[in-house]
Computed example of a mutant assay.
Amino acid sequence: MEDDPVTHLPTDVRAALRVFAFYLGNGTLDVDLLEGIDYRAHLFEFGSDLEMVFAIFANVLEVDDRGQTLNDGDAQYRAAQWIRERCDPGYQVEPPFEVWETELHGP
């Protein structure tokens, strides 16, 4: 039997993206790491920064063979680290981002 072609993102992935977008837009993405930093104005003023936040989240997010997300908290944290680095020049991302984490895909 052949695998069915994927026509939609798995429900768990869609839910992870929705929750991530909610926290991001609400200003509550990783409140410990981003406490006191109002990053929303910065992200929404410069579209490429918002693009990178979603790219990092999507690149880090892992999904099992059933479509269940395995690390949405880690993906949120890595995106939050990038935001913190952009808004706080004194912040050092640990571990540093790898190329695959910040790769932009598509057109």
Rank of each mutant, 00 (worst) to 15 (best):
Q92H: 11
E35G: 10
G27Q: 09
D74Y: 13
R66I: 01
G73T: 14
G90H: 09
L70Y: 07
E51L: 12
E85G: 02
A58T: 12
F46Y: 11
L61K: 07
T28L: 09
T69N: 05
N71H: 12
E62M: 13
S48E: 11
Y39A: 04
R78L: 08
I37R: 01
A21I: 03
D88G: 03
L50I: 03
L43F: 05
D32Y: 11
E85N: 07
A55L: 04
L34P: 01
L34V: 09
L29V: 03
L17I: 12
E45I: 00
S48F: 13
F54A: 11
D64I: 06
T69M: 06
T28G: 04
Q81G: 02
W82N: 07
G90M: 08
D64N: 15
F44E: 13
L43Q: 02
V60C: 07
V93W: 04
D64E: 08
F54G: 06
A80F: 04
D74W: 11
A16Y: 03
F57T: 02
G25A: 10
R66Y: 13
D74M: 14
L33Q: 05
V60Y: 01
W82Y: 13
R66D: 14
N59L: 02
V13S: 08
E51M: 12
I56W: 01
V63M: 07
R18M: 15
A79Y: 00
F22Y: 14
S48Q: 11
Y23C: 13
E35Q: 10
P10H: 14
L61H: 05
Y77S: 14
V93S: 06
A79P: 05
D72G: 01
N59K: 08
V19H: 12
L17H: 15
L43S: 01
V93H: 06
P89S: 13
D38Q: 11
A79R: 01
L24E: 05
A75F: 03
N71G: 13
V53S: 08
H42Q: 13
P95N: 00
A58C: 14
D32H: 11
R78T: 04
F22L: 13
D12R: 09
V93N: 03
V60T: 12
E94G: 01
G36C: 09
R18L: 15
G73M: 12
G25D: 15
E62L: 14
L29I: 01
T11Q: 15
Q68A: 12
E85T: 03
L61E: 04
L24A: 04
G25R: 12
Q92C: 11
V53Y: 00
G27W: 03
T28S: 15
G67Y: 08
T11P: 09
D64L: 03
E51R: 13
V13H: 09
D32M: 10
Y23R: 15
V13W: 09
D49W: 06
A41W: 00
T69P: 01
E94F: 10
G47T: 07
T11H: 15
Q68R: 15
F46R: 14
P10G: 10
Y91I: 04
L50Y: 08
E94Q: 12
D38L: 05
Y91K: 00
G25Q: 11
A58R: 11
W82A: 07
Y77L: 14
T69S: 12
A15Y: 13
Y91A: 04
A75N: 07
